[in-house]
Structures are given as structure tokens and as C-alpha cells.
Design a protein around this nucleic acid. Structure first.
Lengths: 226, 226
DNA sequence: TTAAGTTGTTAATTAATTGTTAAGTCAAAG
DNA sequence: CTTTGACTTAACAATTAATTAACAACTTAA
């Protein structure tokens, strides 16, 4: 759901673990690197939405790394946030000049960290998220903003899981999603649900949208088509 | 949407071009002047929302210009931001005395500039955007000035939190706000309140406005609709 | 054609979320 | 110092959604 990627860079493994844990818990994809050069490569590879960068690191420090990362086309929209010890005042200024968007001072309180990060990501990426109304054809319009669906101009509102399922299928009309795909994307990696759960949700959608729009490919999966 | 006007004042044409480009890219209307007296005239003409003012300029310097601009009725709500070289510490103080709202030190990194400016404008003009009385339909009028609400021409006055909640929901009729959204916007980033707090406020609103206007979408959030 | 494997359907069960009331806390006003 | 009202919490009820179970129907391949 929260498909935002965060790259964590710090030379202390403990810090990486600690932050990793707290951010993953919030549903972010977390990548790590332990020094500047590795960070740059990683950034190139995963094009993260946000990079948390320790200032003090051996070899290539955070500021250097930041400057390099800023030159990567993969990261032109990334937010870069520095982690600084409270005393290192200079690093804030240097950091902002190097192209950082914010800084957070150590010691880090997980709750504060998480909410700062959420706020930053929301500000930056909220406008991208809300194109929100789109017509998927077959007389069906999906409005992500109010979680509602219009079928032949009649508005119906779906419960959460049903909406997510429809949204997933309709996001790529014609594409076949295997049951496994669907489970992973809607129920998550390690949630175990019974065999008939998807079927039942599919059924409920078909009741509301008509039987034509969601097609079964036996032994393979489902697809949305009109 | 972003009909905000920025006046740029610097004696180096390169700097003007550079900043101009970056700010226009963000959707601002940009005007320029290359020295103090021109800046004052321009300010009078376009009544900008924000003025970026180089401190070091021939003829009339930024501080002088700032003082004059501050006297203009056209610019009483304008934000004034100084551009200073990092070394010129004195100018920050002098600038703030002359009525500036912030300063940004050169060399200027576009990303930093843009995000600082966005933040400033957001702070200053977000509240101005709304004409304090507006009709949200369904026989409900909201008056932001005295925290009061008219329902079918009967005026009721709401406590702060209730008002804010109603105001938030009613500001985008039809849009679904998740509980998280609501918590963040009304209770703030890192305030922790119990699980039922929102419900109770919703309930009180429903008691006062009728049960119809605020709808629950289970598992998702609430929306205002009439 | 038939056995094996899938998927569809309905109802029943369980889980999750929200609604409601009453009571507690705190700060400001009287 | 007491009163008042806003805000919050707690406990429990009600509602709605998600899941399972049980079995029917359908497909496919040998």
C-alpha cells in the first residue's frame, strides 16, 4: 500500500537496525547502506523517495554523498534528510547547501522520527498521489479520493478490501493477476488467509459491478476487462 | 491555483535568470528588478506576495529598499526575504530590523530555495485563502472567524476541536479523510490520543448537525456530504 | 467420461471497527 | 475556591466487514 522507499545511511549497524525496524513497522520499504559510496550506488539502484543520511561517516561523509546523490537523475525527486548530532551546527547549514531538505538531530526518538518522515513524505508526494479519479472503461469510474466507484453513473461505496481488490485489478486492465499476486498486494506478505477468501471478495464485486468485468482464468488468476 | 506573485531583486542578471527559472517552474508569477528603486516601484505595481531581496546592491541597497517597501500599503502582507552572502552576518540582523521575514544565504541551491519559499508562503497565505464565511451546502454555513456554524439559519457555536473537525471535513466535501489524516491535521504530528477520541467528536458533531452530513466509511474514514 | 483440481456460492462465524454513554481531567472563568 | 466546559478516556454495545466452512459447479486432462 505504502509503496514508499527509504534509504538509510549510517555507519553504525545498531542505528541502522533501530531505524530500519521502526520504519518498516510503518510500512516503508527500507534499504540501508553503511557509508557514502555504498549509499550513492544504492540510491542509484532503488531510487528511493527519501534518504536518511548520517553526516558523520568514515570515507565519504554525508555531505559529500548528498552532493553526489543530488546529481543522479534517479533521485531528482528524492527527499534528503540529514541526521546530525545536536552540537554539529555547521552541518545543518552545509547540509542544506548540499541539497538536503531537512535535518533531524540525534539522539533520535522513534516516534518523532516517524512522524517527521511521514509529514515530509506526505507534503512531497501527496500531490502526486491524488490524480485520484479515473475512468477504467466499461462504465466504471474509480475515485481514489473518496473510495467510491461509479457504475453507469450510480455511485456505490465499497468496503475497504473490496475496494482495494477492485483498484488493484482495474489499475491494469487486461493484466492477469495470480491469486498469489493478489494475496501479496492486498493481504501482505505474511498474512495467511483461507483459500476461499479471494473468491468471496471477487463474488461480492461481481454482485455490485456485474458479472462481466472481472474474468476468471482457471488455474491462473483474474483480470479486469470490459 | 498557485497564483502567488514573487518579486525578485538582484543586480546580477545571471542570478535573476537562475532564480526566475526555478521559481516559474514551480508555478509562481515572477517579476524582477535589478536595483532598489526599481524594486520599490515594481512592488507598488504588482503587490507581490513575496519579495526576494539581495542585500548588496548599488544605489539603494536591500535594506533601504526593504524599509521603503514596508511603508507601501500594497505590500503590507508581503513576505520579504533577504539574500545574503554567508559572511555578512550583520545583514541578517539589520535585515530583520528593517522588516524582513527571513533570509537565505548565498550561494543558493535551487531546491533549498524553493522549499524554503514554499514553506514561507504556505505559512503566510494558507489562512488567507479562505473567505471566512462559506456555504458548504446542506443548509450549513461555516464562519471561520467566530468559530460558528449556521444550520438551517440557526446559529450554533462549536468548541474548537469540533469546529476544526467539521471545518476539515467540510473543506473538501466528498473527500474521504482517514483517521490518520484527521489526527495529523487536527491533533498534530506527534500528539497521541486515544482511539475513540475522533469518534466522540464525530458524534458530537452529528448531534448538532444531524446524522446525515458526516458519513462513515468503515475501515477507511469519514467524509462530509449532503 | 471421470477423477482431480479449481472456482463459485451461500450462510455462518469471527474479527475489526465504530458508536455510545458516562465519567475523569484539566484549565480558564467566575 | 468553586464552577464550568472542552477534551479525553474507558467500558461496553452495535454494526459492519472479513473470513471460514461446507458443498455445488465447473474445467481440464488422462
Amino acid at each position: 500500500m505504502n509503496n514508499l522507499r527509504i534509504l538509510l545511511v549510517d555507519d553504525e549497524p545498531d542505528v541502522l537496525d533501530f531505524l530500519s525496524f521502526n520504519l518498516q513497522k510503518e510500512g516503508y520499504e527500507v534499504y540501508t547502506a553503511s557509508e557514502g559510496r555504498e549509499a550513492v550506488q544504492m540510491a542509484k539502484k532503488v531510487s528511493p523517495n527519501l534518504i536518511l543520511l548520517d553526516v558523520m561517516m568514515p570515507e565519504m561523509d554525508g555531505i559529500e554523498a548528498c552532493k553526489e546523490i543530488r546529481t543522479l537523475p534517479e533521485c531528482k525527486d528524492a527527499l534528503i534528510v540529514f541526521l546530525t548530532a545536536r552540537t554539529e551546527d555547521y552541518s545543518q547549514i552545509a547540509g542544506l547547501d548540499a541539497g538536503a531538505d531537512d535535518y533531524i538531530s540525534k539522539p533520535i526518538k522513534p516516534r518523532v522520527l516517524v512522524s517527521r518522515i511521514k509529514a515530509l513524505l506526505r507534503r512531497r508526494f501527496q500531490s502526486e498521489t491524488d490524480t485520484s479519479i479515473f475512468d477504467v472503461g466499461g462504465g466504471i469510474k474509480i475515485n481514489k479520493e473518496n473510495y467510491s466507484v461509479k457504475v453507469d453513473n450510480k455511485e456505490i461505496s465499497l468496503p475497504k478490501k473490496e475496494f482495494e481488490l477492485l483498484y488493484l485489478l482495474a489499475s491494469k486492465p487486461g493484466k492477469v493477476f495470480t491469486r498469489e499476486d493478489i494475496l501479496h498486494k492486498i493481504w501482505g506478505e505474511d498474512v495467511v488467509v483461507g483459500d476461499r477468501t479471494i473468491d468471496v471478495h471477487i463474488r461480492k464485486l461481481r454482485q455490485k459491478l456485474g458479472d462481466e468485468v472481472i474474468k476468471t482464468l482457471k488455474g491462473i488468476g483474474y483480470k479486469f476487462e470490459f
